[in-house]
Design a protein around this nucleic acid. Structure first.
Lengths: 201, 201
DNA sequence: ACAGAGTCTGACCGATCGGTCAGCTACCGT
DNA sequence: ACGGTAGCTGACCGATCGGTCAGACTCTGT
């Protein structure tokens, strides 16, 4: 009985396992997540996990690669383009979209990026962050750097920590009473205010 | 040969182990850190770690308790006091001091607080954060909530992630070219601007 | 009807984990 | 001079980890 309409079994199992792994890695942590837990959450056996992915690390790579790819192109475009207000505005919008669209992967990367060195996809993400920081810091005062750091880190972690602290708790109704679109607009407003001083709304 | 002037051996070993554990837990992660690693970094054996602390969890608890205690009193004072501009300003200053004085513990708590549920000290910290969020969110618009979330999370993570990404890298000279005092005032400026709109500097 | 590939699993492996325990050493009060 | 205790350690334990492997089941092409 196919869950989806005659979806190729191979791809379906791979996706289910990747999604389960992403959730566990992001919420429990890579080191603290066992292949058995991932298998249980996805409804397979541990052996099946290792049939579809050659190792635990390979599974992590598959889980975060899409988000890292997006981050890379986003940062590359921002770094090469001039830091005009328009470019910054476009960057902010796409950055927020990335955050909202890849919450789990972002959380995973942000909070465990340091301890997961050696995994190629994570290394690519770290490199992208360094490029971004470099583009920001060159020729900027400490105050400007701080604004950018607080803005990007704040946006990232406000979403991620919000999910972390409140999603499984009794306060869910507060967070979920707003749609992603509402959050998106509010977030973009705050970031714009922080990063484009001229654009006072 | 006493490293310090006739310091009681008990307290000294306990401190060294606690410090080594805090560093490892914060940078590598609690689950990914073994008692053997902690022992190696502190220059003791694994058995000694378990002689001074009854379990790995007890060691974590000892490592984060001071920071959590500070956070608790800080949040309690802010929550009961009125949210006047002056109260906010005082809170910002003390919050930044806590961040700078307990970087490792803050990093540990922030990035692993969710996966470490059940440890009493972590639970106390999570409760404090919820109280803080509650004090902020009641009667505030989504935009205001977002400002506060971005500000606090941003300040926290800008420091923590800065250390995470750049401390062991080649960019250290950039971060460390500023003193903690410089960072402190820059951070307070940004937070003040975000949280006390009237106080335009 | 049958051969083969694709998917999945239980049994099993060595390594490492957190934690226990008996014993070693050095120092202290008497 | 000596018994006791505090600090510390190596040897060891059961559990669990990531990973291997041989085989069972299903489905397809011929």
């Amino acid at each position: 009985m196919p869950t989806d309409a005659t979806l190729p079994a191979r791809a379906r199992a791979g996706d289910e396992l990747r999604q389960a792994a992403l959730e566990q890695f992001a919420t429990v942590g890579f080191a603290a997540t066992s292949l058995q837990q991932i298998a249980d959450h996805a409804g397979y056996s541990k052996s099946s996990v290792l049939y579809h992915y050659t190792s635990k690390e390979a599974l992590l790579e598959a889980a975060v690669t899409p988000a890292i790819d997006q981050l890379e192109v986003l940062v590359a475009e921002f770094a090469e383009g001039r830091r005009s207000d328009a470019a910054r505005g476009a960057f902010i919008g796409r950055f927020v979209d990335l955050l909202l669209g890849e919450r789990l992967a972002v959380h995973l990367f942000v909070s465990q990026g340091h301890s997961l060195r050696g995994i190629p996809a994570i290394e690519r993400g770290n490199a992208a962050i360094r490029v971004l920081a470099d583009a920001i810091c060159t020729g900027a005062s400490l105050a400007e750097q701080m604004r950018f750091g607080v803005a990007l880190a704040g946006a990232t972690y406000a979403l991620v920590a919000g999910a972390t602290f409140f999603d499984d708790d009794e306060m869910t109704q507060l967070v979920t009473s707003y749609s992603d679109d509402d959050v998106r607009v509010a977030l973009i407003d705050v970031l714009t205010e922080l990063l484009i001083p001229a654009a006072g709304r």
